[in-house]
Design a protein around this nucleic acid. Structure first.
Lengths: 169, 169
DNA sequence: GCGTAATTGACAGTATACTGTCAATCAATA
DNA sequence: TATTGATTGACAGTATACTGTCAATTACGC
């Protein structure tokens, strides 16, 4: 007869949402990088490009609200996008603190070309599930992220993107 | 009538699983850190402590397989746990490359004490959903992580933990 | 038992992701 | 207008998370 089992088993990790969210994030990034290898773009860089394309002349602070990404880290992300020639930073004439963000032609072209690869990556993440299960998971996840929006350090504020209009650099 | 909308809208980000997994991971970590503030422990450090408690004398490579965590990063995680006095690293007599991992008494006590706080954090992550939706989400997520296990760089290999038995330091 | 494979831990490098701080600048108001 | 407070971008510091490399060591095929 074996001695009494430890009070805390690996189920204290494996069956918990925190662990599963971490694993799924690892897997999602891994698939994205693999599918988009030839473009040398990370998921966050992709999100930033889409947001800048949608809101030309946005500044870094508002961009961070639009993609729910920490402002401190966003600086280096933009730097990399700039050094790769996908993004331009122009100082605002109205507010000397602000640098306005624009896609370069190369950045816009990249975004068009990468879309089918991104789509394939997103499809692969959910591929192991049946169609109905995919829809169910996405619906529940969207709800949960939305309902927990205020919890994270950088809540999503999609409407912030509009504030730059009329302030044009 | 406004001009034709951009081909690529923010839905190319917001409605995609990759974005939602990233957001949910951000939120999960944020809640964990908040609930466990007084213990100064991160989610990964918690997972490592649980695994070491379950498999005393495990080495770093096997530990990485048991918590599906990159071997390169795990070194610094263990270092931090060691410097906080939660973990001991003892060289193996049988294999001079290997350092065997053990919880200290303080580490074991910490693990016991933190459990209710971890449970509260895990519950908070799913709190906005109805009970049936919580169960549904967890079931789908568990399936998906399991079915995608081989995709990530460090697949989960829970059974690896047993290999150290009989090799005792 | 010897040369080669593989394993192990460590390290360098890149990229998120967070906390906190700072100076420059702008806005709001007394 | 002068002071105060908020905003903005930059930076330092910590902690994941990955790729790739390396030397020491072990295991294995012959």
């Amino acid at each position: 007869m074996p001695s009494k089992p430890p009070e805390i088993t690996m189920d204290a990790v494996y069956t918990k949402p925190g662990y599963l969210f971490r694993r799924m994030q690892q897997i999602a990034v891994s698939i994205f990088i693999e599918e988009c290898r030839e473009f040398d773009l990370t998921p966050v860089q992709y999100a930033a490009l889409v947001a800048i394309q949608n809101h030309p002349g946005i500044d870094a602070t508002r961009l961070s609200a639009v993609i729910a990404f920490d402002r401190s880290t966003l600086g280096s992300v933009i730097e990399r996008l700039e050094s790769k020639g996908h993004v331009e930073r122009k100082p605002s004439v109205e507010d000397k603190r602000v640098k306005l963000l624009y896609l370069t032609k190369a950045g816009a072209a990249l975004l068009r070309n990468i879309m089918p690869f991104v789509d394939r990556a997103q499809a692969r993440m959910l591929a192991p599930l049946k169609s109905t299960d995919r829809k169910m998971l996405m619906a529940l996840l969207s709800q949960l992220v939305d309902l927990n929006n205020e919890v994270s350090r950088v809540p999503l504020r999609a409407e912030d993107a509009l504030e730059h209009l009329g302030k044009g650099g």
